[in-house]
């Protein structure tokens, strides 16, 4: 039963990722991306990490994909359809992806991952939420705050870059 669910979820993840790259229609591409995110969150559920699974859906499938879709909706539909799907560097990307796949396959065969211990390190007294909170706010508090500031700087930077002064426009 668990294997069947795992195969369905991994199929959704892989097919979704493939569809994101291959599909001609940009909107369909976004839909495939959401499928892939949902598959990944299902895998997190199977790892006994429901908190991370839900955050995966809320942040990636719920918020980031909506923003991407929103930007596409602000563009002209004909411009989107005329765009070339790949730039000339796509062969490098394929080579890199295949290398990564080979790497992971070799690792999987070498270490013989034991599936019976799945998710043991992801829960503390049965609560994944508590574990994430403990680690983020006790052990890694300083890097966490640092990342928050870096993200804030990126946000402010984006606003500064895109917003023109009224004097310049005149």
């Amino acid at each position: 039963m668990a294997e069947l669910i795992f195969f369905v979820l991994s199929l959704a993840t892989i097919v979704g990722a493939l569809g994101t790259v291959i599909s001609k229609n940009a909107y369909a591409s976004a839909l495939w991306m959401i499928t892939s995110f949902i598959g990944v969150s299902g895998l997190f559920v199977m790892l006994n990490a429901p908190f991370i699974a839900m955050l995966q859906i809320i942040v990636y499938a719920g918020a980031i994909a909506v923003l991407i879709l929103f930007v596409m909706m602000l563009m002209d539909r004909r411009v989107l359809e005329d765009k070339e799907r790949f730039n000339p560097q796509y062969l490098w990307a394929i080579a890199f992806g295949l290398g990564l796949l080979a790497d992971i396959t070799v690792l999987a065969f070498k270490f013989r991952i034991n599936l019976s211990h799945i998710g043991e390190n992801l829960t503390l007294n049965g609560s994944n939420t508590k574990m994430v909170g403990d680690i983020l706010f006790k052990r890694y508090l300083f890097p966490f705050e640092l990342i928050a500031i870096v993200l804030l700087v990126a946000l402010v930077g984006a606003i500064v870059l895109t917003k023109k002064d009224k004097k310049e426009v005149e």
């Binding site: 909107y27 839909l31 959401i34 949902i38 969150s41 429901p50 908190f51 839900m54 955050l55 859906i57 809320i58 499938a61 719920g62 918020a63 909506v66 879709l69 909706m73 609560s127 994944n128 939420t129």
Partner: peptide
């Protein structure tokens, strides 16, 4: 009966907007 029921609600509220978005797009 989930221990993260509230997060589940939010996750799927977020996904439910795709129905409307894709209705408009398609």
């Amino acid at each position: 009966h989930l221990n993260v029921a509230i997060l589940f609600v939010f996750a799927f509220l977020g996904l439910s907007s795709y129905g409307v978005l894709y209705a408009g797009i398609s």
